[in-house]
Write a protein that binds this DNA or RNA. Structure first.
Lengths: 262, 262
DNA sequence: CCAAAAGTGTTGGCCCTACACCCATGG
DNA sequence: CCATGGGTGTAGGGCCAACACTTTTGG
């Protein structure tokens, strides 16, 4: 467990600085896709958001990472935000690509390719995919209301997934620890605007899969200038009410900027 | 400056674990390319290896990052090692992709596209490139002997470069600090088998663009179990001779493995 | 008054920084 | 003997880990 107050910077992290252009009347570029690994925490488990689809042949429900081919004139980051939005309705999430997957054997399974050819109405050969990663605050209750049917699935119990999506998820889980470590804003972006110390602690505990000492954690919060106490506290709990904290984005960015000029 | 002995792990770092297949009689895949940012230190400056080409029209010498379209059945990592080898003759270098660049405006400059179409004998539209990064121990003297003409260029004084190669280099320089920090093996892979404390220190100083205190640095070397003193020392210097150290890869990997099971 | 979670301080170790002088060698 | 870089130790501060009890609240 690390508290790197001295290194606070992940190159090219995004928060929807893109202008959102409509590409839907354009043609797809059938050589490159973008897949999003959206991680979240539910029932104290690290979960990944998977989209559902019904297999036309077998009638069974199948799962995959939210993703899509890119459009002819679409930037990669733009495509990632499009997928994020189409899947969850969210727009402003700290999102960043973390790796490309381009093995020529990715499309070895003919079933996967057939499905994609039906979905895109294009002939599919090889596809290189750019994988994006975010901690994503879609609450379970909102899922599937307006957007496509999706499912938070614990990373410990993934179903069968097409292409190399399992490998992509495994790499993403390794990567998220490095990220939250170097750019803690990711964690605060994930939490609601007001959060308690234990919510923050549980989040770290689940990401790092490790217990954190409660007293030490409070000291750590106090040391983080950009985590500020509020006057409000949780109500209606059957025990002592917890203080709410909030994230001061300006202070954070100031510190971040200073650290990277040294 | 950071000495993260507790976090020693960069997911998916490569050291030519690929079997080298020959693809030269296959066709290229004109939608995806791989570019390599090979960094090195010359005259106390951080440099990048650029390949030279003569512009058929103007007759001028132009520069670009070593890179190539991938072959139809070639993996991305494999393509990166192919480019590394074709450019420098090296095979075993710690290499890793660090970002994809896929703006539809990458190929906005028609001159760049024309050159690529001539070189590949294919019609070029949009290209997504996967950028790889390594510290690369080609000595200046070896350059251009057997392989294509290349040039170590200080990153502070880059010439005009095609596509978005300048942006790629800028991102690579940001990334290399994170990497050497998390996976110090990169630095030792760069240095010769026997190196002095000041060589190691200068390397860090140039990568981080920061002076390091000599005494503290010696303590730090002593604390790194995987950096071991040898009995040998530099000869023929017009001053006190420096002790050689070497890198114990086994110890390093043991520590690395232990840290990542905790 | 009981159950359940919130909140709080101290100590010791380790790592980091700052800082100045003598040592070995070749010319 | 001089110029050049090599090599060494100490003290103080900050961050981190380990550790146990009291407080608040609802039921």
């Amino acid at each position: 467990m690390l508290y790197r107050i001295y290194c606070l910077y992940l190159p090219h992290i995004l928060c929807n600085t893109m202008q959102t252009t409509t590409h839907s009347n354009e043609t797809l570029y059938p050589h490159v896709s973008v897949d999003c690994v959206l991680l979240g925490i539910h029932d104290d488990e690290l979960c990944v958001l998977l989209t559902e689809r019904r297999n036309a042949g077998t009638g069974q429900t199948e799962y995959k990472l939210p993703g899509s081919l890119i459009y002819e004139t679409e930037d990669l980051d733009e495509a990632a935000y499009r997928i994020l939005n189409e899947t969850t309705g969210l727009k402003r999430v700290l999102l960043r690509q973390f790796r490309s997957f381009g093995s020529p054997h990715r499309t070895a399974n003919k079933e996967d390719v057939l499905w994609l050819e039906n979905a895109s109405k294009m002939k599919i050969g090889r596809i290189v995919t750019i994988a994006y990663l975010a901690l994503c605050k879609v609450r379970r209750i909102k899922i599937g209301e307006k957007y496509g049917p999706v499912q938070w699935t614990p990373i410990a119990s993934l179903p069968r997934l097409p292409f190399d999506h399992k490998e992509i998820i495994a790499e993403a889980v390794k990567e998220i620890r490095l990220w939250t470590d170097v750019e803690p804003a990711i964690v605060f972006d994930y939490l609601p605007p007001l959060f308690t110390a234990s919510q923050l602690r549980r989040t770290y505990e689940i990401i790092y899969d490790k217990r954190i000492d409660v007293r030490n954690f409070h000291k750590r919060i106090n040391a983080m200038e950009y985590v500020v106490q509020t006057e409000e506290s949780q109500q209606g709990m059957p025990h002592r009410s917890a203080r709410y904290y909030c994230f001061d984005k300006k202070k954070y960015n100031n510190i971040r900027a200073k650290l990277n000029t040294i």
